[in-house]
């Protein structure tokens, strides 16, 4: 198949690859879900993974922080590099990897603890904060960057599960950025949210892209068009096309991509 790769997003000079997937193949038992994909996540870019259900985009996303390790019978071949280091190397601790490559899930999943404890959890287990005041600052900073501070500053010790869906998702984002990750993986972060909450999260993604490398799986092509610099189209476990987002949506190179984005199947 005709695969176009690594076209530079407009406006970025000499982009550096933050993460690189090299010939990645993922198996669930006998079933091969990802059939040999090469893809680079550039520094400070937002890259959207789109494609029909079951095309493997979520599986591929979860390979970047080894969340697939937790699935029984899931096996990965090929290499994934973070700043040139193999994330499956013996000296790469998975705890360290996940501290550097954070993740936000499809369904908001705050811990059933207070808002404060949700955000403070990462810094606490990784020993990032020096003292109570430092931890407070870190929590406030993360909540501010997630655009949630003003809404929750008076009830930091109320349960995180008591927030609305959109607030919960932003809390999960705050929780993820509280450990200062380098890459944030988002697995359909807005699919359980209403349009207003979605807009807020998308705004947040745009802001976060200044500092973080973000990979986002989405079912909404409008969302991909709104938030991402590049878009990758997946089909049946293969990467069909990856290009600058406006190019993918205006001049798709592949017939499958075109069929998908014009809504002929999905």
């Amino acid at each position: 198949m005709n695969t176009t790769q690594n076209t530079q997003p407009a406006g970025l000079q000499a982009p550096r690859a933050k993460m690189q997937a090299q010939d990645v193949r993922v198996f669930y038992g006998e079933h091969q879900a990802i059939k040999g994909i090469d893809l680079e996540l550039m520094e400070n870019e937002v890259i959207a993974f789109i494609g029909p259900s079951g095309c493997g985009k979520s599986t591929f996303l979860r390979s970047f922080n080894r969340m697939n390790d937790t699935i029984e019978g899931c096996r990965l071949e090929g290499r994934i590099l973070l700043d040139g280091e193999d994330i499956h190397a013996a000296d790469m601790d998975v705890v360290m990897l996940r501290a550097r490559v954070g993740m936000v899930f499809q369904k908001p999943n705050p811990f059933p603890k207070s808002i404060y404890d949700n955000v403070a959890y990462g810094p606490r287990i990784h020993g990032l904060a020096r003292g109570r005041g430092d931890l407070d600052d870190r929590v406030e900073d993360s909540l501010r960057r997630a655009g949630l501070w003003d809404e929750v500053k008076d009830r930091l010790h109320a349960p995180g599960t008591g927030l609305s869906g959109g607030q919960q998702q932003r809390l999960c984002i705050a929780r993820a950025i509280a450990v200062s990750p380098e890459v944030i993986l988002m697995d359909e972060p807005c699919s359980a949210l209403d349009p207003i909450a979605t807009a807020k999260v998308e705004e947040l993604i745009a802001e976060l892209s200044q500092q973080y490398t973000i990979a986002i799986v989405t079912h909404s092509m409008q969302q991909a068009a709104r938030v991402s610099d590049r878009t990758a189209y997946f089909h049946l476990g293969e990467l069909i096309e990856v290009n600058a987002t406006d190019k993918v949506f205006t001049h798709p190179q592949n017939a499958l991509t075109e069929a998908y984005i014009t809504g002929r199947f999905g």
Binding site: M67, A99, M103, K107, N109, F111, P112, G122, H126, R175
Partner: peptide, 27 residues
């Protein structure tokens, strides 16, 4: 205990033991 809680903890970089004792067991 919903699996999403374990996932959330592991994705935060918690070890398995931390995920269990900080989140799963209390629930």
């Amino acid at each position: 205990v919903p699996g999403t809680i374990r996932q959330a903890a592991l994705a935060m970089g918690a070890s398995r033991t931390q995920a269990v004792f900080h989140h799963v067991l209390p629930l």
